[in-house]
Amino acid sequence: MAVLLNLEPDHLDRHGTFEAYADLKLRIFQRQGAGDTAVVPRGFGPVPGKGRRVEFRFDDPLSAEPRIPGPHNRENAAAATAAARAAGIEDDAIAEALRTFPGVPHRIELVRELGGVRYVNDSKATNVAAARRALASFPESRLHVILGGRGKAEPYGPLAAAFKTGDRAYLIGEAADEIAIALDATGVPYVMAEDLGSATAEAAAAASARDVVLLSPACASFDQFDDFEARGDAFRRLVEELR
């Protein structure tokens, strides 16, 4: 069984074009035979291989709602449900998993709530599409979003468009100037921070009860950290030290 959650621009700095990236990603289905299963978003185009096609969509009926927030996580839950049902797993077991699965580190991970402010580690958001999904996960909260790192040759206009009125960005890393241009074009306020530590401190100082301080960089971490896990761990330590 192979599952495709989505296909959006990523790693363009490495692959050159979206078409080249898409071709490589879809190879997951290439060697499937008639006895295999290809789980894909509803309406997605043809995929290689001969696997039996099973489709999902974010608004599919589920046996239970997922514990973790965000419309993209409901879409993930729909994909997991489709795959589990295709594998013969009963709905009661699927429902229990959806209700209890807490998520994984660095993906919309609630680190702490302090003074009514939630601090969320989404360091795994290393591209624009992932960061946009993170921003959409908190529609009722004012966001203080830490962005930046090493860019992947993506435009940042779609990211800037995902900010609500009242949200603010804190920019770090090599891509900070490029992100700032996109934010200027849409009127999103931002702070140019020296590094993750200063960005976290400034966001914490500006946040008030019911706000969310969100690390969702939309960039790779390699300009300042070994990987996204190291970046997320550093954010977690900074948040735990706040008083």
Results as ranks from 00 to 15, higher is better:
Ala64Trp: 02
Lys152Asn: 06
Leu242Glu: 07
Ala220Ile: 05
Ala136Lys: 11
Leu4Ile: 08
Ala175Lys: 01
Leu215Ile: 06
Glu8Gly: 07
Glu96Cys: 09
Ala203Glu: 03
Arg168Thr: 08
Ala64His: 06
Val120Arg: 00
Pro189Ile: 14
Ala169Asn: 03
Asp177Trp: 10
Ala176Asp: 04
Ile172Met: 11
Ile68Ser: 00
Ala169Gly: 07
Glu113Asn: 08
Glu8Arg: 15
Gly33Ala: 10
Leu215Asn: 00
Thr165Cys: 08
Cys219Glu: 04
Asp184Pro: 03
Pro102Asp: 05
Ala207Met: 09
Ala80Glu: 01
Pro61Lys: 09
Val111Arg: 00
Tyr170Gly: 00
Arg27Lys: 14
Leu159Glu: 04
Ala201Pro: 02
Ala205Lys: 15
Arg31Ile: 04
Ala22Gly: 10
Glu75Tyr: 00
Glu113Ile: 14
Phe58Gly: 05
Glu178His: 13
Val213Gln: 01
Gly103Phe: 00
Pro217Glu: 10
Ala125Tyr: 02
Val239Tyr: 01
Phe44Ile: 07
His144Ser: 09
Pro9Ser: 12
Arg31Tyr: 13
Glu55Asp: 12
Ala129Trp: 12
Asp195His: 11
Gly70Ile: 00
Arg168Cys: 13
Met192Pro: 02
Arg31Asp: 15
Asp184His: 11
Lys124Tyr: 14
Gly45Asp: 14
Ser198His: 13
Asp195Ser: 11
Arg42Leu: 13
Arg67Cys: 04
Gly33Val: 10
Ala2Cys: 14
Ser123Thr: 10
Gly151His: 06
Ala87Arg: 06
Ala131Met: 07
Phe228Lys: 01
Gly16Tyr: 12
Ala153Pro: 05
Thr17Gln: 07
Ala77Gln: 01
Ala78His: 01
Pro41Asn: 11
Phe18Ala: 09
Thr81Pro: 01
Arg118Asp: 06
Ala20Tyr: 04
Glu90Val: 14
Phe29Thr: 03
His15Ile: 04
Phe222Asp: 03
Arg243Leu: 03
Ala86Asp: 03
Gly49His: 09
Ala129Asp: 15
Pro9Met: 12
Leu196Gly: 05
Glu65His: 10
Ala77Ser: 09
Asp122Arg: 00
Arg53Asn: 07
Lys164Asp: 10
His106Lys: 08
Leu147Val: 12
Ala125Met: 09
Val40Ile: 15
Arg14Asp: 08
Ala77Asp: 00
Ala82Cys: 08
Arg112Asn: 13
Leu242Val: 08
Ser63Val: 10
Arg236Glu: 08
Asp167Glu: 11
Leu238Gln: 06
Ala80Cys: 07
Glu19Val: 11
Gly157Thr: 13
Arg118Cys: 06
Gly148Phe: 03
Gly70Lys: 00
Phe228Ala: 03
Leu24Asp: 09
Phe163Thr: 02
Asn121Asp: 15
Arg85Pro: 02
Ile172Leu: 13
His11Pro: 07
Ala182Gln: 03
Glu75Trp: 00
Val104Ile: 15
Gly51Phe: 01
Arg236Leu: 05
Pro217His: 09
